[in-house]
Computed example of a mutant assay.
Amino acid sequence: MVKEPAQGAIWPCHIIYTLCMFELVCNTPGEVDERCKVDCACCKDGKCGQGKYFSSDECTLGCIDGYRGARCYKRCTHNCTKCERHSDVDNCIACNDGYYPGSARDCTSKCLPGCKTCTSGTTCTSCMEGFYDINNKCNRSCPFNCITCSSNNDCGSCKDGYYKGYQNDNINFPLLNDCTYKCRDNCLRCSSYDRCSLCKTGFYGPNCEKNCSTGCLSNSCDMHTGNCTCFPTFAGVTCDKCKTGQYGNLCDQQCSVGCKSNVCERKSGNCKDGCIVDTIIGDKC
C-alpha cells in the first residue's frame, strides 16, 4: 500500500502516475458505478481484500468485463466491453458489436454496415444477422425470411413462421434451404411442417391444432399439455371447469345460494345435488 507523503513533501512523478492508474489521486476517464462498491460486485468471482494499493476491497483476481481500476469501480468508457485494468486512458481490449478499438483504442471506430464484428474499417470477422459474404465485407443480404445465411439460397436459421426443407414435408417437392416455406397456421416457430416448436398464443398440441381453454389467463397454455394458470372463476389443470359456486360459459355467474354444496351445472345453473333444504324447490333452488 502507498502511504501519504510527509507534510510538505511532494510525491515523485512516477508515484503520482502509478496512483493515477489505480485511481487513487486523480480523475481518470470512466464513470464510477456505485453498485461496484457493495460486496466487491465488480471484482472477478467477487474476490477482494487487502492488496498492494488498498487495505481492503482491492480486487484480487481482476475485474469483470466492462470495468477497471484496482477496486474495479470504474466502467470502461464508450463501447468497450473489456479494457486494461490499470490504464489512465481508454485501452479497450474488446468492443460492443459494430465497433473496433481503432488507433485510439477507445472502441469509437465503427465497423462496416453489414459487419457484426471487425478488426478494422475494412475487415469483418463476422456478419450481422441478415447479411453474408464475409470476404466481401458482409455486403450481401440474406433471403427475406432468413435470420442468418451463408449464401442467397442457404439459410442457417429462419424467421418465425418459416422453415427450410420440403414443402409440407413431402419429399416429392424440391428441397429448399432459403426459408421459403410457411409453418402451419397456428405454429409460430417450426423446423419442418410437422415439427412445431412454439405455438401461437391460444393454441397447443403437436401441430398446435387445439385451443387453450377459455379459462386460461392471457389465453396462454402449455404447448404439450394445455395446462395453464386460471382466471379467478375457473378451476382444473387446464382451466376448463368452473370454480365451485360459479357457472356459465365464462364461469362468471354464481350458483343459487340454495344449491347443496354450492354446486350447479355449468351450462344451466341447475343445482347438481338438489337444494340445501326440502322446503326450497325448483331446478335452481
Rank of each mutant, 00 (worst) to 15 (best):
M21S: 14
F22N: 04
V25G: 12
C26S: 14
N27S: 13
T28G: 06
T28M: 05
P29H: 09
P29M: 07
G30W: 04
E31W: 12
D33E: 15
D33W: 08
E34W: 14
C36K: 13
K37C: 10
K37M: 14
V38E: 15
V38S: 14
V38P: 13
V38N: 15
D39I: 06
A41H: 06
A41G: 05
A41T: 08
A41R: 05
A41Y: 05
C42I: 04
C43Y: 01
D45L: 03
G46F: 08
K47P: 05
C48D: 07
Q50F: 10
G51P: 02
F54I: 02
S55D: 09
S55P: 08
C59K: 01
T60A: 11
C63E: 01
C63T: 02
I64M: 10
I64Y: 08
I64W: 07
D65G: 00
Y67P: 05
Y67C: 01
R68K: 05
R71G: 03
Y73V: 09
R75P: 01
R75G: 00
R75Q: 00
T77H: 06
H78T: 10
N79P: 10
N79E: 13
C80Y: 06
K82F: 00
K82D: 03
R85A: 01
H86R: 00
D88M: 07
V89F: 08
V89P: 05
V89K: 11
N91Y: 15
I93R: 01
A94E: 08
A94H: 05
A94C: 09
C95S: 07
G98R: 06
Y99W: 10
P101G: 08
S103N: 12
D106C: 12
C107H: 03
C107W: 02
T108Y: 04
S109G: 10
S109N: 13
K110T: 11
L112G: 06
P113R: 01
G114Y: 06
G114H: 07
G114D: 10
K116V: 03
T117R: 13
T117D: 15
T117V: 14
C118T: 04
S120M: 12
C124F: 13
M128K: 14
M128L: 11
M128T: 02
